[in-house]
Design a protein around this nucleic acid. Structure first.
Lengths: 356, 356
DNA sequence: CTGAAAGCGCTTACAG
DNA sequence: CTGAAAGCGCTTACAG
């Protein structure tokens, strides 16, 4: 399957120099060399330090983390398990987490679970074998392995979607409030013929968004049965949005406003409205949750709840560190805000009259 | 900086069982246990094998790859260094590479270099310390570390953009041909007032696309000086496209057709055309290179050269394996094709008359 | 100020 | 069929 793996080293590549090579060249013990490599300078004469440093330069020594990890029993590696790389929101979470980890001297394994329980478990076990010290679970799914890790108290942070197998540290927005804000956005514009579009099966995030939306509308006097629910299965949210919109059209009169639980679902629904010649937002206002930067460029017709994915990374890493420190982990709920993309010539703020 | 790292293990988490634990429980030597863990069953009695397996189950043993890596001097880890995670094309390359690696039993470190030479080097050294066996360089930049790695014969594959520091195995499309196809697309529609938009500084890919475009037009009889070049600096291609389009408008008459070297540049240029009330594609046809799936949903006005990023991963991994096997690495050039996104009601194929 | 020694978890000739 | 031993590269008490 992997022919030629027998000779993994290019003939050119000499074996990497080890601490022993440095020590030999500098005429010191490996212990001393190790201390100097690790910046413990107080315990060696200036002359020795200089000699060792020269040797390090000369052989171009770089520490081998595998040896260090084995001995110290720590790897400084974190794994991110993520459901769907080609969703821009996921990419933003990935990028910010990667940057925050690097700033703290960690490196990141990336695992694409495709929202599949079997793959998720395969990765969890593979990562454990690699000595990973913490797990960032972005939109995880229930699985036996996850349950086992959670029960074993393995350090984990759940992002966007809560732990589907029990309690767990969480980073995300207040999804109930986000749904409620979307509801108010419609309400203040006098739009009360409403629908909501979401993927199936439901994650905690979806459920919270939808229920926050419906409960707020109920508070405003819009009875829940007036709000049409349309769901469609699938991982590819644009298709989900298209399919759900189509299902909606088949069942009922077209609404004046639609909440889509993600930007991509809104993109899919939009395409359907265009095929049906429904003017957006004039005849039907579309609101979604994500706030992708893309919206300003390609979707000026969309109003979206901005989720600060770029700030997630810092929070995720802080939370992980507090878990390692055996602190009681407290969820990190980040602020969201609703905003129009403001395309060419479109005023960009939502005006919120005070009071109902 | 990382408070509490002194106690990295949750009190709950018992030390992971080692091969020694298995051996003790099964009453065999560590050697024997190791062989059985590694599937070398021919050398132990069936009874011993069963006993060891029971012990493995009982202590819930999982092999520690750090120990294995140290001893075998191989890690089965590959690193991907990539310039810009929030570009959908990059995400597609990432996803397909990750999947191909997993299929072959490798895991992947992800490093976001932000197109910065210093970060690229920081990562290269960090990855080497982690014992990484191969490097996937997506849109790399020139840097001293890269030069050093290339000279040392470290296994590397360059993706999309060629090695900026000398020769190197490459996976991508034929960028010259892609540019030429875009030229023909305009030519066959009778559009010869043309401009080309690209980011600065120029990568090999950009240069090849632009020169393929211009050379083909020259062949067709359109003199090079008739083609307006507009570039803008930056990493964020949508802004680059907008800025370049703005610069174009400031300098000259608006063209009838524009080649944008990436989809995102086209999105940016599109926004500018909308602000200027220029009908697209009626008054100005936009062609780009990438072929993002998003186009069909949000950019029906765009014609794009489809690049099979989803197939890159397999090719990358095969190429890496051939390099490990000391085979002479041959570049992998994948097929592209030009296509309209085909939005609602728009016919989706480009008709290509035969002959000029 | 410095070094010898043990050991992290594993694999692998080698001997029996 | 099985095991004792060496060693991958490193760190860390401990002794001097």
């Amino acid at each position: 399957m992997t022919p030629g793996r027998k000779t993994p080293s290019k003939s050119k590549a000499a074996a990497a120099p080890s601490l022993a090579d440095v020590a030999r060249l500098a005429n010191v013990s490996i212990s001393t060399a190790s201390r100097i490599v690790n910046g413990e300078l107080g315990r060696a004469s200036a002359e020795t330090v200089a000699r060792v440093r020269r040797a390090i330069e000369e052989v171009r020594y770089h520490p081998n983390h595998i040896g260090r990890s084995l001995r110290r029993r720590e790897s400084r590696i974190v794994a991110m398990l993520i459901a769907n790389l080609d969703n821009p929101a996921m990419a933003a979470i990935m990028a910010s987490t990667e940057a925050a980890l690097r700033a703290d001297g960690y490196v990141m394994f990336l695992c694409d679970t495709h929202d599949r329980a079997d793959l998720q478990d395969e990765y969890l076990y593979a990562m454990r074998s690699q000595g990973v010290e913490g797990y960032v679970m972005v939109t995880s799914v229930p699985s036996p392995g996850l349950k086992e890790f959670v029960e074993d108290g393995v350090p984990m942070v759940f992002v966007s979607r809560r732990n589907p197998c029990g309690p767990g540290a969480f980073v995300g927005i207040d999804n109930v409030a986000a749904g409620a804000d979307a509801a108010d956005h419609f309400w203040f514009q006098g739009i009360t013929e409403l629908a909501v579009l979401y993927p199936e099966p439901n994650s905690s995030a979806t459920q919270e968004r939808v229920s926050g939306f419906c409960r707020r509308l109920e508070t405003r006097g819009v009875p829940p049965e007036r709000i049409i629910h349309a769901a469609a299965p699938g991982l590819f949210h644009m298709q989900v949005g298209y399919d759900a919109a189509q299902g909606l059209a088949a069942r009922t009169r077209w609404p004046r406003g639609i909440l889509c639980v993600s930007d991509q679902i809104a993109y899919g629904a939009y395409r359907f409205t265009q095929e049906c010649k429904i003017p957006v937002p004039a005849a039907c206002a579309l609101v979604s949750i994500d706030g992708s930067p893309l919206n300003a460029w390609l979707a000026p017709w969309l109003t979206s709840v901005f989720v600060p994915y770029g700030d997630f990374g810092r929070q995720i890493v802080e939370l992980l560190i507090s878990i390692w420190g055996d602190d009681a982990p407290s969820d990190r709920i980040l602020p969201h805000r609703i905003e129009s993309s403001g395309g060419p010539g479109i005023p960009s703020r939502v005006q919120e009259p005070d009071g109902a």
